[in-house]
């Protein structure tokens, strides 16, 4: 039981600490702003923020990369946005139509939004996840190569378990007869989504990779492209001339239209499902913790302290639930990708 106590203490620290920091930030502007607090946590940012004590912020500034039509490429650290030098043209817009974006102040006094390809927190998190993936998987593969015909051990076990799971539970039963072609993509996809989901649960890191719609957009787009470009005659015939009663096709091509829309709806649903699930998980935890500060701010700190016990218990529960959701969402995303591929390559029944 000793180790369990330790785990609970560590989990508590990890749960509360980052929220304290965000709370401190949110309170800077006077009253505690719940909406800002929650969205600050789930949104992407140009710095990697850990903790704040009053005015002291512990954060790593990340590089901002901009391309402005007027002045070309700019690369600088995001810390410059907070403490700009004399004549620095960029600033973070805090309100107006460009809220949350970096804007450039032009010579004539107007603002323009440059093309922002910054290495944001989400991008950094994606890079970290990718490095972990590469390290673990290549090491596992090397171990596999080194001792053939022996029982696997260590990292090799993890890698093989992952590969066998994706191959036997997803690719083989749902990927159709050409599943071997898709297997590398499914494996990469599953590993990436699972790891990205899980790293988001380590709250002090403040990462929210799969809760960012741009990331899920990319993943769903890849699935969409693979499906569309592998679609065989049967697949397209099914869309143009589906096997339904004739009045569904003539004179109004109702079913073909629905099927055609389906081509795009499928990846969009894929994108939104993963994004919404992960975002919701993060938001619920944020809301639960925000409750503490809201109570402290609106009523008094003692009520906040009382609420904190309930909030922490509930957030711990939510984190456990999110652990499950992380796995399920990775599984579903990969499974549906395999099924769409199967639909596109199936030769008919």
């Amino acid at each position: 039981m000793e180790w369990m106590k330790k785990i609970i203490v560590i989990a508590l620290i990890f749960t509360v600490l980052p929220f304290l920091s965000f709370a401190a930030e949110a309170e800077e502007h006077g009253e505690f702003n719940t909406v800002d607090y929650i969205f600050d946590h789930v949104n992407d940012s140009h710095e990697w923020h850990f903790l704040s004590f009053g005015d002291t912020h512990i954060s790593i500034p990340l590089p901002v990369i901009l391309h402005s039509k007027q002045s070309g490429w700019h690369i600088f650290l995001s810390s410059q946005l907070h403490h700009p030098e004399e004549g620095f043209p960029f600033k973070m817009a805090n309100d107006g139509p460009n809220d949350g974006k970096i804007v450039e102040l032009l010579a004539d006094g107007s603002e323009s939004v440059p093309f922002d390809i910054s290495l944001t927190k989400t991008v950094l998190a994606t890079i970290i996840v990718s490095l972990i993936m590469l390290f673990v998987l290549i090491k596992g593969a090397r171990m596999t190569r080194k001792n053939p015909g022996k029982a696997p051990k260590g990292i090799q076990n993890v890698v093989e378990m992952l590969v066998i799971f994706v191959r036997d539970q997803i690719a083989k039963p749902f990927g159709g007869h050409q599943y071997k072609r898709l297997l590398p993509y499914l494996l990469t996809l599953f590993t990436f989504v699972l790891l990205a989901n899980m790293i988001g649960l380590i709250l002090p890191l403040g990462f929210n990779i799969t809760g960012n719609i741009a990331v899920t957009f990319v993943l769903a787009s890849i699935t969409f492209l693979i499906t569309t470009f592998n679609g065989n005659k049967h697949y397209w015939m099914h869309i143009v001339n589906p096997d339904v009663p004739i009045f569904m096709k003539v004179p109004v091509p109702l079913m073909p239209l629905i099927e055609f829309a389906g081509i795009f709806i499928k990846p969009i649903v894929l994108m939104i499902r993963l994004f919404a699930n992960m975002l919701a998980g993060h938001m619920i935890i944020s809301v639960l913790i925000a409750l503490i500060f809201l109570m402290s701010s609106v009523l008094n700190p003692f009520v906040g302290a009382g609420i904190s016990i309930i909030s922490i218990v509930f957030s711990l529960f939510m984190i456990m639930l999110d652990l499950l959701v992380s796995f399920i969402q990775a599984y579903i995303f990969t499974l549906l990708s395999a099924m769409y591929f199967n639909m596109a390559t199936d030769n008919g029944h």
Binding site: N43, D116, I117, V123, A214
Partner: peptide, 14 residues
């Protein structure tokens, strides 16, 4: 604002 995919992030992720 989190519902609109950010182009920079899309490029990086890709």
């Amino acid at each position: 604002m989190f519902l609109i995919p950010h182009l920079g992030t899309i490029i990086w992720t890709t």
